[in-house]
């Protein structure tokens, strides 16, 4: 279920292609065939999908299909928002993005958030935007909508940024060292003289961003002690090796995780720290968390909303003067 490993160079290719496509799609006075840009963008999306596709799919196919569909639609909507000269159509495209992102929310076990986002964003914010567009731009698309500010420079910056982000994800969640370790353990088990000596140095060379390194080291040291105590009893050796392989295989799904430091207070409302499962009953759990640990945040958010309301009225209120 992990991705194949990829580096900065691999990440840069789809990023550059995609942003080049975006560059071609951006509105400007001199027309460039939009089809070329769209084609480039699709190629980039496909490349990116290949990059992050699971090496050995372990996810149910329905979930995979939903993920790809939502993601693709969200990205297409986003491209449409960015490249659409007409702000009204842009707003509608944004609504599309929001709906698809909410689909992704659902896949991530956040139904309340999905509903809330659709209501607030697609329902309220986008509609308000449309109202403003109708108030301000009744004559149709303005000159400025057909132009872009520094498109080449912006797209280049965007490409570099995207490449960097992708490569960071690729590096952080790179399963290659663990896969090699597993292969070495399997080889050791299969060999006629099993033991830790054959692969011990492997995981001790792990980069520090693999958080399982320390726990594996502790596990290995414990096994070595046991084996030494039993004077290299082959039975004990194979038992310990099996235990160690299970630990490594379990750790493989947590690659790239950064365990929170001990100084972070543990709260029971947010969910268990160890089994990595969201609490059942999303709305109830979220409500419990909001009104216990984050009560101050909730209060402040409410105050902020009030202040923003008053501020918006104060900004637009004009006494005795008719709107021009």
């Amino acid at each position: 279920m992990m991705l194949a490993s990829f580096g900065l160079r691999q990440a840069m290719i789809p990023a550059a292609l995609g942003l080049l496509g975006l560059y071609l799609l951006l509105p400007r006075p001199s027309r460039i065939p939009r089809l070329a840009g769209a084609a480039l963008g699709i190629v980039a999306l496909v490349l990116c999908g290949r990059l992050i596709a699971e090496a050995a799919p372990a996810t149910p196919w329905i979930e995979r299909i939903l993920f790809w569909a939502f993601s693709a639609l969200a990205i297409v909507g986003a491209v449409q928002l960015v490249t659409q000269p007409n702000p009204a159509r842009g707003a509608v495209a944004f609504a599309l993005v929001v709906i698809n992102v909410c689909g992704l929310f659902l896949l991530n076990g956040a139904p309340f958030l999905a509903a809330g986002t659709i209501i607030i964003y697609a329902g309220a914010i986008v509609v308000t935007f449309l109202f403003v567009i109708m108030l301000c731009q009744q004559t149709g698309a303005a000159d400025a909508d057909a132009r872009s500010r520094e498109p080449l420079l912006s797209c280049a910056a965007g490409a570099i940024l995207l490449g960097l982000l992708l490569s960071l994800v690729g590096r952080q969640y790179d399963p290659a060292p663990i896969d090699e370790l597993l292969a070495a353990i399997d080889k050791s088990i299969a060999s006629d003289k099993p033991g830790f000596e054959n692969f011990d140095h492997e995981f001790r060379k792990f980069p520090t961003h693999l958080p399982i390194k320390e726990s594996l080291e502790a596990r290995s040291d414990e096994s070595m002690l046991k084996i030494k105590a039993s004077k290299n009893d082959p039975k004990v050796v194979s038992e310990e090796l099996a235990k160690f392989r299970a630990a490594v295989a379990a750790g493989r799904s947590r690659v790239g995780d950064i365990p929170p430091p001990d100084s972070v207070p543990v709260t029971p409302f947010a969910g268990s720290r160890t089994d990595h499962r969201l609490p059942a009953g999303n709305v109830a759990a979220l409500g419990r968390l909001l009104f216990t640990d984050y009560i101050i945040g909730v209060e402040m958010a409410g105050t902020l909303l009030l202040v923003a309301t008053i501020g918006a009225i104060a900004i637009t209120y004009r006494s005795g003067r008719k709107p021009a």
Binding site: L8, E150, L153, A157, G158, I160, L161, L164, L168
Partner: peptide, 16 residues
């Protein structure tokens, strides 16, 4: 744009 470029440099330095 300057902000984004600054962000790019920042991330690059931090990561690589």
């Amino acid at each position: 744009l300057a902000t984004v470029l600054g962000l790019v440099v920042f991330i690059f330095v931090l990561a690589y």
